[in-house]
Design a protein around this nucleic acid. Sequence first.
DNA 1: CGTTTACTTTACAACGTTGTAAATGACAAG
DNA 2: CTTGTCATTTACAACGTTGTAAAGTAAACG
Lengths: 336, 336
Amino acid sequence: MAITLHDVARMAGVSIKTVSNVINDYPHIRPTTRTKVEAAISELGYQPNLSARSLRSGRSGVISLLIPDLRNAYFAELADAVMRAAQARGLSVIIEQMPGGKKEELEILRGPRMQLVDGILYSVLALGEEDAHELDSRMPMVLLGDRIFHGPKDHVTMQNTAGAKAATEHLLSLGRRRIAALGSHPGEVVGSAGLRLDGYRQALDEAGVAYDPSLVIPAINWHRKDGAAAMRRFLEQDVPFDGLVAFNDSMALGAMRVMQEAGLRIPDDVSVIGFDDIDETRYSIPSLSTIDPSKDEIAETAVDLLLERIENPDSDVPARDLATVFRVVQRESSAR
Amino acid sequence: MAITLHDVARMAGVSIKTVSNVINDYPHIRPTTRTKVEAAISELGYQPNLSARSLRSGRSGVISLLIPDLRNAYFAELADAVMRAAQARGLSVIIEQMPGGKKEELEILRGPRMQLVDGILYSVLALGEEDAHELDSRMPMVLLGDRIFHGPKDHVTMQNTAGAKAATEHLLSLGRRRIAALGSHPGEVVGSAGLRLDGYRQALDEAGVAYDPSLVIPAINWHRKDGAAAMRRFLEQDVPFDGLVAFNDSMALGAMRVMQEAGLRIPDDVSVIGFDDIDETRYSIPSLSTIDPSKDEIAETAVDLLLERIENPDSDVPARDLATVFRVVQRESSAR
DNA sequence: CGTTTACTTTACAACGTTGTAAATGACAAG
DNA sequence: CTTGTCATTTACAACGTTGTAAAGTAAACG
């Protein structure tokens, strides 16, 4: 049987409330009492029961991180960063993957598991602006994705448009003019795909380079294999190109593999840049230039915002939108 | 305010216990009552409070997964597999990373967070056989690592020795005779490093190839960068070699990168094989041969064992040791 | 038609904690 | 020595759920 407050109280010769007070740093406690209680706590190895605490106080010290897919290196690294940030602030993290569609996503959001947590970090995938009202609960929540822009919740985002624009400008600065874009979601405007495509177009416009739709390569999922498959299809069409902006690193790596198999030299024939700065980009052959979105900063900002919402549940601070800084990282795939 | 059993009971015109019975599939309930209650539940959108349930019943439906590091692709993929297996069985997963040493590991194991969970999947990193007694608690636990062999807990493991032996045999079968081993932990016998080194030696012995310590390359951490650094040091020593068995894929990928920079051709000059079958091995250049340890099988077996321990806390079934099957996957890095 | 039997529902008391409000103790001022 | 004012400690009642045991009901039996 686990040790409870009662056991500690009995041993220290005080009431359970006094023990509780010691644990919760209630100020008015005689030093001798505090010492006695602390001795009993460590003697018995007392650990508070989090279920009971959570039931009584409504706080569990656990937050939920909702992401599409841990196998995707970007999300694994983001999860890692979030867990470090959370741990540093005394929080545990429950990770939930949401590989399914919108229906499943809403189900998880409304499911009983969410009752256990104090707040949610939600990397939006399927939900769009039209679903914003679904999030209109009292649950503290910070959004990490890029879909819902003017929802009722705080929002931490990377600068999708500016980042993609900078990536494209980087290739333009190398003299590339036939730059392909990999990972578009035809018809989408508001998600990462739409925003990054927009950045790509802006850069071309400003450089006076005509936008050529045949250089835009769709890819719905953004895994390595999707990048590889999309590139394979693209090469079959024989559209000449000398640069590639991939909307994430995984796709870039898959595509590089296919291009090299096809005899294209990187960066000689094609300069390539990705997005996310996942660890692997440093070790691929060639190493991959990319946009570093500061995952650590995203994670820490998001956890801080969430914690603030958790601690002031009735605050009337309106939803905030924060964008983190990004950085162009030049590696071999776009060396001069 | 959240909906409680009381609200549902009031609406359905029954006692809260009846509602509770309906929810918990208690058999003796009149169909009409069940219908009434279910109607009220869905009308109100009732969700049980997991803290209260956990406090009362001692079960939270959450298990903990303790792993060293999510940035390591193997663990990210393992975590993914565990979460799928858990989700399929109605469990949530709290992931805790334990990048620190033994002290920190024990702290997390004994910390208050573990009170919240019904069981623990523990990918052992720092603890050794001498710490087995530390695990001697009533908490259901399944070990995933390879350090503690005869501890008091169930144990699911990949076949480290046999896998490394098969990997080495694979290179031997290609005619390689100067095969380096990457990732040893000098002095260690019982962890993955020690076991895989053992498999490597067995294969050499059986093939009648002399064991040459100068071909054994130590690397404490098993990240890409550690593999790269270790290979860089190794190349400086100018030890001739024609094969490389890396004790995990990440190191193999880092090492391949360094070898290629140094002008070595893979597989022409050096055949390479890794261990873990992470997704990336399919897309590296060249693609990496590896040992597939069946992560899905590991995850499912482990979750099943854990669930069994959770459901029969007083069972006197002794600790079990299960090893999953593995498979040699040949790719370009060891093509003929 | 009374009585056993099985089914169905309920009241009540936990689980371990913290918030509230009240009780006690200590000390200084009057 | 009383009173007031703090500091310190306590009793008690929740939080929302489920286990226990008992009460109530309907069906079945003799």
